[in-house]
């Protein structure tokens, strides 16, 4: 394993020191491992808190700032944060209007956020929770852990963050967050596994001519393995899965997201195919993001996330945002 780290045990703390040093617009609490927007809490504004395992950068710390999150809690690599962290973040961003927890649907994240919400509630902070579960590769059923939260997390954070910035009440911010999730779908493909620092070797083996379809963002294998083929064909498989779950139509927000180790030129090739696929279905990519936003360490591959827009959602997407990883309009 070759990685730019000082030691396996200090990966998260060392990265937080770098984030603090690079971004004066953030206040990083190194002891509790919370990335705050400078000036939090803001009186009368709903606070947005997200968090999850590290290894998905820039998610979530890179999305803290004007028009998006008020605080982010990074756990250890691929491990959800602990309740203590989440409580510190929740109390630290409560400006009296309540706090929205944006939680990716993984058993660990759900349990830790649930405990934090209950304990914060005991201390008088009103908390609402929105679960993100956009990944169509996972079959949803009452008897399983349900679908994973992946790329749509960024859409939820951006759009709910924009609404919160206008001074909207907690119930409204939560409503729009849930609407974004319901309108979003994702599918991921890996060309290589990733290497978790503490494990020291790749999370699975993949031959030179094989790819994994339906991966999540934690280096776990996908649902099926397939032979390597042209980008056009791989994109078709991904988009067919999305379209079968929620037929693509109308004005669509699209993200082609790199998993951390994918050259941008390949992501643009993928985007061209995604855009062509949408046109074929009568849908239009009216807003787009291409780049590394919800990563899985050094994995090569991509995920594609779509969100069927409404007038309100488009306006909120276009609203000014100023964070380390996403900024426009300001």
């Amino acid at each position: 394993m070759k990685k730019l780290i000082n030691s396996v045990d200090s990966v998260v703390t060392d990265a937080l020191r770098g984030i603090a040093a690079a971004h004066p617009s953030l206040r990083v609490d190194l002891e509790n491992k919370v990335v705050f927007r400078a000036g939090a809490p803001r009186p009368g504004k709903v606070g947005l808190v997200s968090g999850g395992g590290s290894g998905h950068e820039p998610l979530h710390g890179g999305f803290v700032g004007h028009g998006m999150l008020d605080a982010a809690c990074p756990g250890e690599v691929f491990t959800s944060p602990v309740p203590d962290q989440l409580i510190e973040a929740t109390k630290g961003v409560d400006g009296g209007a309540g706090v929205l927890h944006i939680v990716k649907n993984y058993t660990g994240d759900v349990l830790n956020f649930q405990m934090a919400a209950e304990l914060s509630g005991d201390e008088g902070v009103e908390v609402a929770t929105v679960l993100v579960n956009d990944d169509v590769a996972v079959q949803d059923s009452l008897f399983t852990a349900g679908r994973r939260g992946t790329g749509a997390t960024l859409f939820v954070e951006k759009i709910a963050g924009a609404l919160a910035e206008t001074g909207a009440p907690l119930a409204e911010v939560a409503r729009v967050a849930r609407e974004v999730n319901e309108r979003s779908r994702s599918f991921g493909v890996a060309l290589t596994p990733c290497t978790v620092p503490a494990a020291g070797k790749p999370t699975f083996e993949l031959g030179d001519t094989e790819i994994e379809l339906g991966i999540g963002i934690h280096g776990e294998p996908g649902r099926t393995r397939a032979p390597m083929r042209e980008a056009r064909e791989i994109v078709r498989t991904a988009m067919d899965a999305i379209d079968a779950d929620l037929p693509l139509s109308g004005e669509t927000l699209v993200m082609v997201n790199g998993m951390g180790g994918t050259p941008l030129i390949e992501l643009y090739i993928v985007f061209a195919e995604v855009e062509a696929y949408l046109r074929e279905k009568g849908a239009t990519a009216v807003r787009s993001l291409v780049g590394n936003y919800v990563t899985s360490l050094d994995m090569q591959g991509f995920s594609v996330t779509t969100c069927s827009l409404t007038g309100e959602l488009t306006r909120l997407w276009d609203a000014p945002v100023e964070t380390p990883a996403l900024r426009w309009g300001r």
Binding site: G53, T79, S80, V82, D84, G108, N112, M115
Partner: peptide, 12 residues
């Protein structure tokens, strides 16, 4: 354990 582990195994 709840405070230090994280993931699902911490709470469980």
């Amino acid at each position: 354990l709840i405070r230090k582990v994280g993931g699902a195994s911490g709470p469980l």
